[in-house]
Design a protein around this nucleic acid. Structure first.
Lengths: 162, 162
DNA sequence: CTGTAACCCATAGAATCCCATTGTATCCCG
DNA sequence: CGGGATACAATGGGATTCTATGGGTTACAG
């Protein structure tokens, strides 16, 4: 898999009283260059206390990969079960949300809880996908490189300053 | 097989006194984008104590998938038998039900029994199809990943809370 | 008749759209 | 190169639409 357009950059946006968040324009432009959807898929990140996000086309790609894997394997009961489990996680545990003409999504309450997102959302491009963090949790995570935390701190100051 | 529109997300809806259930709008939109039917096909899930559901067009696809699976195996008596069994489940043991203008189906009594659906129906998108669970049975099933159970618990709380 | 299914209507709450504001980045032209 | 004009991004608030759900009424079959 070699995607042409990659997510990169960072931004810190507010979650308003209705639960709306603007998806940074530079991430939206990648989504719209990858396909013509104005939609993002949200999932709990597998390792971090954050959300993972991508365009719907990427989800389909992931899915067809799983399918091929299954057809290749022997169809043992064990393989079947693992397939079912992965499929459930990949689709039931994710939500697809459209963004409106002003580039905002309504953060689904479940995802907001899973990602522990409060009133600020830190967007981090990571190539094929991007992440959405509660900035405080990122700063508190020992696994995060200091240089990245500096970026988070900068975004926080930047916002306070204005 | 590469379906364009995939079922994803989760929702917990009530089964009312008449046996009616709303199919979540985000699942209906996939059905209607795949074809122009306002109908779903219900079947007992092959592995879980739940129902499997999809649009009528998908049934044909499922059939060819089974065929291919059979051709791949040597046609041992065992494989033949499994094929016959699955084919019966896939076609004889299904019901096609239309949903009305408000997006509700009347859950057929047999399916309700087969899926052990009580007064709450948990909808789980799984890509090509979606599943309908009694949430309590999902929580009790050892094969279901804990992260997915969290989602079921969240949906239950969400409903109680409001 | 009588129970059941299809249809119609009503409603509360949530999601979505629309418009307005503000700050910032970009452009353009002298 | 400077500085004003312009376009766009992020955000707030109100109005509108949609969703899920309950209840009633009619159509129909056994």
């Amino acid at each position: 898999m070699a995607l042409e357009h990659l997510f990169q950059g960072s931004a810190l946006n507010a979650v308003d009283a209705k639960g709306r968040v603007s998806i940074p324009a530079f991430l939206r432009s990648v989504i719209e260059r990858r396909g013509d959807a104005r939609t993002i898929v949200l999932a709990k990140h597998e390792a971090f206390p954050a959300l993972s996000a991508y365009d719907p086309g990427y989800a389909a790609l992931k899915h067809s990969k799983l399918e091929r894997l299954l057809e290749k394997e022997e169809t043992s009961a064990q393989a079947q079960l693992e397939y079912q489990q992965r499929n459930l996680m990949a689709f039931a545990a994710t939500e697809e949300v459209p963004y409106d003409s002003s580039g905002r999504i309504l953060m689904p309450p479940m995802m907001r809880r899973k990602g522990e997102i409060a009133d600020l959302a830190l967007f981090l491009g990571t190539g094929e996908t991007f992440q959405i963090w509660n900035p405080e949790l990122l700063l508190a995570d020992k696994r995060i490189p200091e240089d990245l935390k500096d970026i988070a701190r900068f975004r926080l100051e930047e916002r306070r300053g204005s």
